[in-house]
Design a binder for these strands. Structure first.
Lengths: 229, 229
DNA sequence: CCATAAAATTTGTAGGATGATTGGGATATA
DNA sequence: TATATCCCAATCATCCTACAAATTTTATGG
């Protein structure tokens, strides 16, 4: 039997390797890549081939080149970069609506099939955010808040859902951060979080969904009033 | 005042133009592009520059090059291609779950803010699918069924939601097609569709959501049993 | 120490040369 | 005619060298 020519082009091979290095954080975000000459030797390809590979990742949003300076890592995920570019055209509000649609679905699925380990992890982040709230540590609060939400989505067991949600959260991070700095609503948040946790624990899908929905409504209203100011 | 160096790299300019040509369907999917020599003249750039631009779009999934043959258009959207690549790693079931999460959200939003024009359009596709059902025209039925769902999502007014949903639908098209060929459930579908339509018309969010949810459950069960066979 | 100029580094663009693969047309053969 | 094979032109893949443009680093003069 003759093997089909599955021989990928050199460019794609190099691009793939670089993508892998980025994904595995061996080349970290913000870091500068070795110059072209070194990479040529490292991958053992010509300058053209190397440059085409680099250009592919630049266009995808993973790298950024600056003439005279070098090439730096800009993002770690193709899907994330694609979403980011797309989301810039949409409004923040639209993005939040989609993100919370995903979370609502995730919460229902999580309620259905959460394990004890899931529950324990969710509880951990609730406790952490409570501590942060007591200590008035805003950064810590935001971090554990985001982790809380991510953990619920992870408990859904749907990897596509997880990826989309996390990318959106990452993209919205700076926005959410600014928002929470301006309007820190610790007690309300915690009440909702505890309610959501209990709903998932009791495997009450509807209740879980409506807690998330409630969260969404509050957030939307706050953002709208914030934008009007 | 000195203008900032808004001079994008030549490669990005060429890539942008090509992307635009593809998006505007001037270069159609499946069609062959002019050979490199011609494109070099047309864009007035060197071979390297042109090739880097092409490679960027190849990597993004919009183009496909075949040595000795030429370059053809493969897809029309960056987000679509990125999702497609990502979705191949996920299971069909996961993708469907996400897609229907988006639709559920869209149905609620549509119920809230649908216009008369939206309703008219939705009704149109219901009628079309009814006709197709009477005439036993499966392709027509599937087409109008998909349009029916898309129209509801469009009525949500959230462009990001629309884009994500449509890309997922496109990607799943062949799968859904095969599925419906195997298990054509005309009457049931229509009942649900009519119910969903009326819920949106009456602006009953909860009812709209639960119709979609019901749709999801039926679909999931069917797929699971289909996979077991 | 600081400002400025020169040098080195690094990416951007151009053009040419050769190899590899494909597709189609010409040719030969049954 | 039909078919199989070979050959060639078209096309992309890779490599090479050269120079331009932008940035960073180093050297220099005060």
């Amino acid at each position: 039997m003759i093997r089909k020519t599955n021989r990928k082009s050199l460019v794609e091979q190099v691009a793939e390797q670089m993508e892998h290095l980025i994904e595995q954080r061996e080349w970290k975000v913000g870091e500068k890549l070795p110059p072209e000459m070194e990479l040529m030797e490292e991958f053992d390809v010509s300058r053209n081939t190397l440059r085409e590979a680099i250009r592919a990742l630049v266009h995808a949003g993973l790298l950024e080149t600056k003439q005279g300076s070098g090439t730096i890592v800009r993002s770690t995920s193709v899907l994330g970069a694609a979403l980011e570019r797309h989301i810039k055209k949409s409004t923040m509000l639209e993005t939040l609506e989609v993100r919370l649609a995903l979370e609502k679905q995730a919460a229902q699925m999580a309620a259905e099939q959460r394990t004890e380990a899931d529950l324990a992890m969710i509880k951990t982040y609730i406790d952490r955010s409570k501590n942060a709230s007591v200590n008035q540590d805003l950064d810590q609060f935001i971090a554990s808040d985001i982790q809380f939400h991510k953990t619920i989505v992870q408990a859904s067991g749907n990897q596509l859902l997880v990826d989309l949600y996390e990318h959106m959260t990452d993209i919205l991070y700076s926005f959410v951060h600014d928002f929470m700095v301006m309007k820190p609503s610790f007690p309300l948040e915690q009440e909702v979080h505890l309610g959501l946790f209990e709903a998932i624990q009791k495997q009450d899908e509807n209740s879980a969904a409506s807690y998330v929905e409630h969260d969404m409504e509050v957030l939307k209203e706050n953002i709208i009033t914030m934008m009007e100011e």
